[in-house]
Design a protein around this nucleic acid. Structure first.
Length: 420
RNA sequence: GCGUCGGUGACAGAGUGGUCAAUUGUACUUGGCUGUAAACCAAGCGGCUUCGGCCUACGGAGGUUCGAAUCCUCCCCGGCGCA
């Protein structure tokens, strides 16, 4: 009996959407579910004692960050969950995202989504992706001077990735085997294969090269995990599908990863906003229906609906906490910037339709005031509300699937959310 | 009263003859953030504008100069010292 299993409770006919239960050694996760991001073993700003009332069923921590600081303590504490005072199911990301964020993404303001071309007739937007690609594909072997000259903290080769710590400049090397070993020590219920998260701007040839490499790393990650009898009995491992925005690469990747004996699947990397639904749907059709699927790092409410409709069970995203920390508040009528002047004397709750502990006890004017005065409680309350907003959204989606009202719920929600 | 130092855009505080509508920080206004190098980053921040400029501004009034926030004179205001 594997430590991780998934049971489907209900499906929407004619769609891949389903409601289910993810079973782990630390309890169940009702899906669709939002997985709160606790990179360094904390959901930024929110004590784990509040998880339950905020609807947080499960969290995902990060291998790279915890490896750089805290690994021994986490291990000795009995795993990342125990360490952070959370008894529920946990995941750890493999560090593959840092291949991107500290690699080609370092020093650049690029997100996981392909930037929309503002004026396709102008050459500049065309040129930018290529220049990123060029400066990315050059080094294939670790070389400090070369890496520095390229302004990156991570470079990739076939065996793995070499990092310069963003904290102290020390050198570190991740391989699939190393990532899995560290994740074993971190002790989460679900660990991820080490992958390469590519830039959305990378071209076809590079995306293919990276996806193929990710497949080889997936096999090595899986072998490494299954080879550890103890850990294999207590932790599950997800493989990660890559391929960027290219449909055929995505399908090929999904088939390749699906053929391996993973306990579940992550869909990673970048997409282009306008056809994410189509690609996700096709990807998920290649993945075994009875295993759980996680969409890595995506999360705006609109994206969650798209994900659910194309068969995603769990999502994680930094936006609720990052937006919250920076003053962005999710409401049923769209996002608002709570520090803005218009909320100075707005004594209504953050979201009039929200039942969270923040909305039940505090006003927009108060949270606005906390942000204006740089009081830490502002970002905390905002983060708490936002996390609830996302967990509540997935919970309501789940309930709507169970009682056959998904499409009505989706249309009502989006109409209101996008009404501003 | 004498002496001395100083009065710069919302505030603090640079500038000390032209490259100054004036560095910088804060405040203010608004954006952005999608497996967290992020309690962060970006843009704007005198008025008008046909976006080429035009007007008004560095306590006030004169003056020197081709040209003054910058130099001179007087006045007003403030700090400090001595009476």
């Amino acid at each position: 009996m594997r430590p991780i299993s998934f049971s489907i409770e209900k499906e929407i006919p004619g769609s891949l959407a389903r409601a289910g239960i993810l079973h782990t050694p630390h309890g169940e996760v009702n899906t669709p579910a939002f997985v709160a991001v606790a990179t360094k073993a904390n959901l930024k700003g929110i004590p784990s004692v509040h998880f339950k009332e905020l609807g947080v069923q499960t969290i995902i921590a990060n291998t790279y960050h915890l490896y750089l600081s805290g690994l021994d303590a986490v291990e000795k504490a009995g795993g990342v969950g125990k360490f952070m005072g959370f008894s529920g199911p946990t995941m750890t990301d493999s560090g593959g995202f840092q291949v991107f964020s500290l690699g080609v993404g370092f020093g650049k303001k690029i997100s996981k989504f392909l930037p929309e071309q503002k004026d396709p007739t102008k050459g500049r937007d065309e040129r930018e992706p290529n220049s990123l690609l060029q400066d990315f594909s050059a080094p294939a072997v670790w070389d400090e001077d070369l890496a520095t000259s390229h302004g990156k903290l991570a470079i990739i080769d076939e065996e793995g990735v070499s990092f310069t710590s963003h904290l102290d400049g020390t050198f570190h090397r991740f391989t699939p085997e190393r990532s899995v070993e560290i994740q074993h020590r971190l002790g989460a219920d679900i660990i991820y294969a080490f992958d390469e998260c590519t830039a959305p701007t990378a071209d076809y040839d590079y995306q293919k090269e990276a996806a193929d490499r990710t497949h080889r790393w997936a096999a090595r990650s899986l072998k490494s995990h299954r080879g550890n009898i103890d850990k294999n009995n207590t932790q599950g491992i997800y493989g990660i599908v890559q391929g960027g925005r290219f449909e055929d690469l995505r399908i090929e990747s999904a088939k390749t990863i699906a053929a391996m004996d993973f306990d579940g699947f992550g869909i990673g990397g970048s997409f282009s906003k306008h056809d994410i639904l189509g690609i996700l749907d096709k990807v998920n059709r290649e993945l075994p229906k009875e295993k759980p699927r996680h969409l890595l790092g995506i999360g705006e409410p609109e994206d969650i609906f798209i994900g659910v409709e194309s068969g995603i069970d769990t999502f994680d995203c930094v936006l609720p906490t990052r937006n919250g920390r920076n003053g962005g508040i999710y409401t049923s009528r769209g996002k608002i910037q709570i520090p803005n002047a218009e909320f100075r004397e707005d004594f209504s709750s953050l979201d009039k339709d929200c039942e969270c502990i923040v909305c039940k006890n505090y006003t927009r004017a108060y949270v606005h005031h906390l942000f204006r005065t740089h009081e830490m409680l502002g970002p905390i309350l905002a983060s708490m509300h936002n996390v609830y907003f996302l967990t509540n959204l997935t919970e309501r989606i789940r309930l709507s699937i169970l009682d056959d009202t998904f499409k009505v719920f989706r249309d009502d929600f989006l109409r209101c959310y996008q009404s501003k």
